[in-house]
Design a binder for these strands. Structure first.
Lengths: 192, 192, 192, 192
DNA sequence: TCCTAAGCGAGACGGTACGTCTTGTCTTCCA
DNA sequence: TGGAAGACAAGACGTACCGTCTCGCTTAGGA
C-alpha cells in the first residue's frame, strides 16, 4: 500500500520543520525561537509553515506526539514483566536514552514548560492505565489516589529532567533504581 | 527618622505596579499579561513602569522577593522545633495558607513556570542550609545528595501547587502529613 | 481542414478564463479580482492558468484584443461614408452598444485604468490612420497635432465611459451628436 | 499661538512619510511602491506608519489634500478677473508649474489612476461652483450640463497630464490657450 | 517665597514578530 | 500528454508588543 508521492512531499516538509525546531530549541531554548528562525533553518516559505501548523506551539506539540508515538510503539515491543510504576519508569528512562536529542529538546530545561505540562498529563494517564488492577486495598487511604499519582509523576519527572539537563552521569538503570529507592517505600507504606 | 516623601511616592508606585500584575495574573495568567495591561491597571505612565522595573519579568521577580522576605520573617518568628525537611515544609504550607493570593499568583498554574524555577532554586538552598548538620552517614550513599535534594523539593512543590490549584480541599497540616508519608520512608531508608 | 481537437480544448480553456475574469470584473472590479478567484470561477487548475497567460494583466489584455478584433471586423463591414473623427466615433458608440458587457468590463469604472490606457493608445493610432489625408493646412498650427489627437481621444473616451457607467440614458447616435457638438467647432477652428 | 512640541513631532513624521512616498512615486510609480519602501526611506518604524495612515492609499490621499489646500490658498490670493472655466484652468496650469514635483507625482503617469479620479471629482465640483451664476440660457440644451462638465474637466486633465508627462515643452499660458481654442467654441455654441 | 530637581502621565517612536494573503513556479497524478 | 490539483518559496500586508524617548505638569525640600 504505497503512499502517494504528494503525501510524501508533505511529510518531508513537516519533518524539515520539526527537525529545524528541534535543533533551534537545543541551541537557544524554545521561548527564544521565532517562527522566522524555523522557516529560515528549514528553507521553507512562511506560508508553508502556516499551511502545516497553526503556530510555533502546534509544531512543538507535533514533536511531542512524535515522541509519544515512538514511545508507545517501544512500550508494546517490550516483554511485559510487571505493572509496577517502577518497571514503567525504567522503560521511559531507557527510551529517553535511545532518543536523547528528542527527549532533551522536549523535557530538558531548553524545552520550556509547555512539554512538561503535557508530559505530566500523559504520564498520569499512563500510570492510571498501568495501575488499573492494583486498586487501593484501603477504603480510606491516608493519601488520596489523585495526589499519589500527581506526586509520583512529578517525582519521576524531576529525576528525568535532572538527568537530561546534567549530561546523564548515571545509566538509565541506575536512575531508575534511585527513583525506586526514593519513592517505593513511601508509596507501599500507603498502599500497605 | 521618617522616610522622605519622595521615597514614599516611589514605594507607592512600585506597589501599584506589583498589585496590578498580581491581579492580572490571577485573571488571565502571567504569559497573557502585557506591560500595557499592567500600566493601564495601575494608572501609571509607560515610562514610569520602565523607570522602576526593567521588564515584566523583573516586576514579577520583585513579587517573588516580596514573598521570600515575608516568608523568612515568618520563619524566624517560629519556634525552632527541629530541622527536618518536614517541619520546614509545614511552615511553608502554613505561610501559603496565610498569603493565599500571593502564593496562588506565583506558584499556581496561572503564574507560569518562571516562579517555579526560582522557587525550586530557593527551596533547594534553604533545604541545604537546614540539613547542614545532617551529613550523610554513609560514605557512598545510593542516591547522591544533589539528586536527593532535587527530588525532595520537586515532590514538595508538586503537592504545594496541586493544593493551590485545587482550592485547598485539605488543611495545611494534612497536606504536610501526606508529604511526610510519601517521602519520609524513602529518604530515611537512604540516609539510614 | 478541421482544427485539431487539442486546439479546440485549448481555445475552450482560454475562453473559460476570459469569461470568468469578465464576470468577476463586473462583480467586484478589476483590482479586487485575484488569480485564485479566476481559476475557481473557471474551474481550472492554477498551473493551467499560467500555461495560458503570464498573469492577470495578460488575461485582461487578451480581452482587450478580443474587443479590438471584434471592432475591426465590424469597422470593415461598415460602408465607408467619410473619414471624419465623428463618423469613426459613431461606429464605436454603436459597437459598444452591441457588445455592452465586454465594453463595460473593459472601459467602465470597474475595469481599472489599465484598459483605458490601452484604449487611448489604440484610438490615437486609429485616429491618425483615419486622418492621414487631412494634413494640416497651416504650417504652424496653434495646437500641435499630437496634442490635438490626445485631446480628441480623451474627450471621446470621457463621453464613452460616462455613458457606460451611467446606464446609457441616451442612444449611441445622440451621444455621438453631443460629442460632435462639443468638439467639432474647436477642432475646425484650428484646422480652418 | 505656538503649537505644542508634541504636535510638531507628529507633523514632522507625517511630512517625512509624505516626502518619502512622493520621491518613491517619481522613481518607480505609485503601484510599485510598498509600505516597506516608504518606511525605509522615511526612517520610520512600521507601526509609526500605521499610527499615522491607514494604508498606502491614505498616505497618498493626504498628499492630494496637501495639493488641494495649497491650490485653494493660491486661488484666493489671485485677483478675481472673471469666472470663465478658462481663467480657472490658467490658474491651475500656473500652480502646477510652481509645484511641479507634487503635481507630477500625483497627476503624472507615475501617479496611478487614484489621484486622477479624485482630481476629476474635485475639479468638477470646483467648476460647478465657478459657473454658478452662468445658468444655461436654454431650457433644453443639446448637451446636458452633467455631460458638459464631465467633458470639460476630462479635456482639461488630458492636456494637463500630457503636459506633465512630456516635460512641459510649452508655457502654462500657451497650454491654457490651446485648451481654450479647443474647447471654447464648442462650449459656447451650446450655451449660445 | 521662590526655584530647582525629581517623579510622573502621556504617548510618539523604531523595531521585531506575528499570522494572513497573493503571486508565480513546480511536481504529481489522472484521463 | 495536457490539464486539474495543489504544495511550495517569496514577500507584502496590517496588528500587537516591546523598550526608549521626549515632553510638560506637579510637587516637594533647600535656598
Amino acid at each position: 500500500m504505497p503512499e502517494k508521492n504528494e503525501d510524501r512531499r508533505i511529510q518531508r516538509t513537516r519533518k524539515l520543520l520539526q527537525d529545524a525546531l528541534l535543533a533551534l530549541i537545543l541551541e537557544k531554548g524554545y521561548e527564544d525561537v521565532t517562527v522566522q528562525d524555523v522557516i529560515d533553518r528549514a528553507n521553507v516559505g512562511r506560508s508553508t509553515f502556516y499551511a502545516h501548523f497553526q503556530d510555533k506551539e502546534s509544531l512543538f506539540l507535533s514533536e511531542f506526539e512524535t515522541m509519544r508515538t515512538l514511545f508507545e510503539r517501544h512500550l508494546l515491543s517490550q516483554p511485559a514483566t510487571d505493572t509496577s510504576p517502577w518497571s514503567l519508569s525504567l522503560v521511559i528512562f531507557k527510551h529517553a536514552q535511545d532518543n536523547l536529542q528528542l527527549y532533551t529538546a522536549l523535557a530538558g530545561k531548553q524545552g520550556g514548560s509547555l512539554a512538561l505540562t503535557h508530559l505530566q498529563t500523559y504520564l498520569s494517564a499512563l500510570l492510571r492505565t498501568h495501575l488499573k488492577q492494583q486498586s487501593t486495598k484501603k477504603d480510606n487511604p491516608p493519601v488520596p489516589p489523585e495526589i499519589l499519582a500527581h506526586y509520583l509523576v512529578s517525582a519521576f519527572m524531576s529525576l528525568l529532567t535532572w538527568w537530561l539537563d546534567n549530561n546523564r552521569p548515571y545509566s538509565a538503570e541506575r536512575m531508575n533504581e534511585m527513583f525506586r529507592q526514593l519513592t517505593q517505600p513511601g508509596v507501599e507504606s500507603i498502599l500497605q
